[in-house]
Design a protein around this nucleic acid. Structure first.
Lengths: 248, 248
DNA sequence: TCGCGCATTTGATCTGGGTCAAAGAAATTT
DNA sequence: AAATTTCTTTGACCCAGATCAAATGCGCGA
């Protein structure tokens, strides 16, 4: 979540449309130049694999634009998405040699990367970076555990609503509220990708989205553009009555 | 996992049967005394709640003996375990005011705690502590994501086998191998607690354990004492052919 | 504009695991 | 040792979601 505290501890990256959440600009300004030295950009097309699970990973970085997914695959082909990477999200495991999951670009993707060795060296010298990373990793851990509840105990309908909730909360166009406090956003995932995230089949995803549409919880224009007329209703459907600070 | 690297970066705590994994004794020995000053022990009986989700949490610490669980509960009573705390596991969220989950002792439990404020202050001064905590949090994140695959895609039988695999790998008596490379351990959880971890009902857990017994994958003496005659067979049943370093 | 490929929807049927119910088996208390 | 409670197993039945199959867009290049 891009809250005030997060932003105040971010690097200002004049090239990127987002601010890196990994390091602290305010406290360690003198480190900025060194970070700039080891920074580079990588672009990927939709569907391209950024890195395969188990491969050596010699960079860390953050998503500048586009969407990527972290997925695990079993030998027989069953796959489970274990993370959704949106702009400003961090990728990489400082101190770990290899990638633990497949990282796949689901839309065209731009990443801002830092070479890993120098980044880790800088982390050694700059306590705030380690603290910032710890903070971010705790956030990811919370998100993963929240998702364990979704996967372990929620019904298909609740899972869809939970996913819509997450996307609504994180989508940038969320600022653009329609009248009456409605939320408008685009689904960044195919039905199949949603199914992989939700532990369902794509048919079930499609059916439940149709059901939510039929029941007036959401309105669909086309297949991807979603309007949520009443967000608290959606939260209720998600089986989660904490509004997470979205509403007053 | 208690590997060599982990132990070398642990505090030697002469009172505890385990070594704290939170901080680095080798590099920052001068900090040991300060840690000792803010250290205290807490005991809990089986079934007792250590802390409720949302409550203010003024300590961090690690499990000395016994087992605790992290659980999330929905308003209607559905619960999902999101973490299993075994001896040497760390509890607490440095930098976060409250507990995110219910922590419940499932057996009699002893914890070695540090008051949070001074611990955090020490973390500020001692880079290795932040690094160690980052490392541990990355481990927990991996475990949580691994479990997302279990909850999202595995069958009931595979889930049971996955849980047995985890317990077998972590149980101390694992060193005590029976002849022929068999593994012997005790289940530290009731059928209901297993169900909460696995996203199943206790009846399904019971049935699948019976099935694994019938098929010779495991042998049960009583309800809790388990012998695994062939660990690679168990891994196969878990749908996970990486042996995680257990076997040569 | 047509036609091809892909994403999505919808239908029909099947099944793994949930639900409800009851009967053991241990552990604990009296 | 008998009684009570708690944990576990097993059975019968049901249903949410999977599977298999077909139709319906929808976008894009020729």
């Amino acid at each position: 979540m891009l809250n005030e505290k997060t932003l105040s501890h971010s690097i200002e990256c004049e090239d990127c449309p987002i601010r890196h959440r990994a390091v602290c600009a305010r406290c360690e300004t003198h480190e900025l130049e060194r970070l700039e030295e080891i920074k580079y950009y990588r672009s990927f097309e939709a569907g391209q694999t950024v890195i395969w699970s188990g491969d050596r990973m010699d960079f860390v970085g953050s998503v500048v634009s586009g969407i990527a997914t972290l997925t695990q695959t079993m030998e027989d082909g069953r796959t489970q998405m274990v993370g959704l990477l949106l702009p400003s999200d961090f990728v990489g495991r400082p101190g770990r040699p290899g990638a633990a999951y497949d990282v796949v670009a689901t839309t065209d993707l731009v990443m801002c990367c830092f070479r890993k060795k120098p980044f880790e060296a800088m982390m050694e010298r700059t306590p705030h970076i380690a603290h910032r990373l710890l903070e971010m990793t705790l956030d990811e851990l919370d998100a993963a555990r929240e998702w364990m509840l979704v996967l372990g105990r929620k019904t298909a309908r609740e899972r869809i609503a939970s996913l819509l909730t997450i996307i609504a909360r994180r989508d940038a166009t969320l600022n653009m509220r329609a009248p009456e406090g409605a939320l408008v956003f685009d689904l960044p995932l195919t039905r199949e990708a949603m199914a992989d995230y939700l532990g369902l089949t794509l048919e079930t995803v499609s059916r439940q989205i149709s059901a939510l549409k039929r029941d007036g919880v959401i309105v669909l224009q086309g297949k991807r553009h979603v309007t949520v007329p009443d967000f608290s209703r959606l939260l209720e459907e998600a089986g989660d009555d904490s509004d997470g600070g979205m509403l007053a």
